[in-house]
Amino acid sequence: MQLSRIGVVGGGTMASGIVEACILADYDVVVRTRSEAASHSVKVALERHLRRRIARSEIDDERYEVAMSMVRYTTEIDDLYDRHLVIESVVEDIEVKKHLFAQLDRVLIEGSMIASNTSTLPIMALAATTTRPERVLGLHFFNPVGSLRLVEVVRSLVVAPEVLEAGRHFVQTLGKEPVIVNDEAGFVVNALLFPYLNTAVRLLERGVAAKEDIDRAMMLGCNYPMGPLALLDLVGLDVAVAILERLYEETGDPAMLAAPTLRRMREAGHLGRKTGRGFYDYQSKA
């Protein structure tokens, strides 16, 4: 199955990272956002990331210009009509995604594939909103997309084998490593990661150790590049609670119940790096 024309829906960090990976692999990309401002944000992020690659001698100026020429921006969903594959990376809300998948199903040419970058939501529920459920799959990228090589390729109950294989091959063409996973909440990485992060918060709640020592223990004892509380700040505490809620909804496992501190910090708006305050204070850092 030949893929050369890619669509990306979304205007956030993950969407811009996916676009970057695609244009560096010489795919023709159309980015659909909800506003001109969001399109501008994606373009600015792409320019910044590619300039950093130039500074690191990963690409040269000519490669930069070629990559930037591979992407176009639109606010109209109909402009995605001729894409072979559209990757959705919008807000992690099942109803929003269902509505988008139904729209994509209406405008895309016959034979096109639709993928979701969701980290926890059921691919089958999204596929069921379309007339082509066998051509819907999950492609779960990890943040930051530019440096993390893993992509979970999610297999629903009805996805066609050739579609799953096309998704796996597409990931490889981006220079990334695909892992085939079943359509279960959290897939592999988040199903393992978030109970660990949640446990770290519970240790903090019980006063087992200070936050800095919890993070230092995991970095030095397990050779992790970042401690669990710092990682929660990077992920975003609102995102973490939403993922834990989804995991608990599907599994009923008490380990998936978000720690009270996480919920209270979300309610206070202390969401981590993106708000300047989480388990650590980022407001005073340059």
Rank of each mutant, 00 (worst) to 15 (best):
K43Q: 07
A166W: 04
L108R: 08
K211T: 04
R202Y: 15
A128Y: 02
E245T: 07
G207R: 08
V71K: 00
I59Q: 01
Q283F: 01
L174V: 11
G276C: 03
S147Q: 15
E92V: 11
P133Q: 08
S69V: 02
L257A: 09
P161K: 07
T275W: 12
M265A: 01
L157M: 15
A38R: 14
A25V: 13
S147I: 15
L244W: 09
T131G: 02
L104R: 06
V9R: 05
A125H: 11
R202E: 15
G10N: 09
K211P: 00
S35P: 01
C22V: 04
T129H: 03
Y73I: 03
G236C: 11
Y282L: 03
S69L: 06
D183R: 07
S4W: 14
Y248A: 01
R51V: 00
V8Y: 03
A102I: 04
I59G: 01
L231D: 01
V44F: 12
D28Q: 13
V44Q: 12
R51S: 02
R48F: 07
Y282N: 05
E162M: 15
E267Y: 09
P144L: 12
D28E: 13
L46K: 00
L220T: 04
N143H: 03
R32K: 15
M70R: 12
F142E: 00
M219D: 02
E62G: 01
H140R: 01
R52T: 05
V201Y: 12
G272K: 11
F194P: 01
R51E: 07
R277F: 07
A166H: 10
K285N: 09
E205M: 10
S116T: 14
L204E: 08
G236Q: 13
Y81N: 06
H140Q: 09
D105Q: 09
V145S: 00
R5T: 04
V8C: 09
A115S: 08
N117W: 07
L46S: 00
L150F: 08
M113V: 15
V235N: 01
